[in-house]
Amino acid sequence: MNRNKDLKNYKHDLNYLNHSSSGRLRSNTGYVFTYIILIIQSLVIIYPIFLTITTSLKTNRQIFKNPFGMPTDFNLGNYIKLFEKANYVKYFLNSLIVSVSAILIILIVSSLASYALSKYKFFGNKFLSLYFLAGLMIPIRLGTINIMQIFQTMHLYNNLLSLIIIYSAMGIPAGILIFSGFMKEIPDELNDSGRVDGCSEFGIFRKIIVPLLGPAIVVVAVYNLIPIWNDFWFPMVLINNENLMTVPLATAKLFGQYETDYGIIFALLTSAAVPPMVLFITLSKYFVKGLTAGAVKG
């Protein structure tokens, strides 16, 4: 074994030496070239965000006079104005209530369904799996008209519950995809041992399966969090009460309201952008796993 590994390393080194001067990536010029491109792209990505944050710390006069310059002093005036004029904390809480509730529902219902789909053989299993997966390809907003009609009859217009329900429906396909992929890896022997102990089927799910789902739960939650938190379409269509606005809807509304005051606008955009960004940087690993779950299956 060891020798094999050594051989491989040796080959690798040889390979490295062989091609070190041939203009391939492992050569110095290749390295430099790769880094230059990656750094340029990084700047392209970072600069607009950086600009938004720094501009939010400037006064209106500075913004128009010297758009490139760094803020001369750390000026939080725009944020103070923004938080005085708009109930930003409220919007944030609304977004939080909606996202957390929807994600909890997604976690519960899609883990239950995935268990049935991945652990039992029954008539229609294959069809149901496809039926759920089809949801990944269908933009739910195409049903907006009927969704509005449904919530109108349910008297859930202007109610965060409507958003929670819609986002739950939206997240179920991805939840099922990720959970079933994960559950298929769990050996059936575990379930059988539960049966031998006299547990009910739900008992097996709860006592044996759920404790193993930890990583999958994080992946499903994080993967759904970003689209739910950032959604603008459904709040726009279903919410018009100022007290119930979510962050993206409030951003659009306040953008219209303070359009002439760039300082406030940039403070607003920064406030909307930074929390998901920080969250994402911390949890990016799980998001990427969720995103590629589909790719692995093809």
Binding site: I45, I46, I49, I226, W229, N230, F232, V247, P248, T251, A252, L269, A272, A273, P276, M277, L279, F280, I281
Partner: peptide
């Protein structure tokens, strides 16, 4: 990182 931002932002 940009993907974490809301489209409208």
């Amino acid at each position: 990182i940009p993907t974490a931002l809301s489209v409208i932002v």
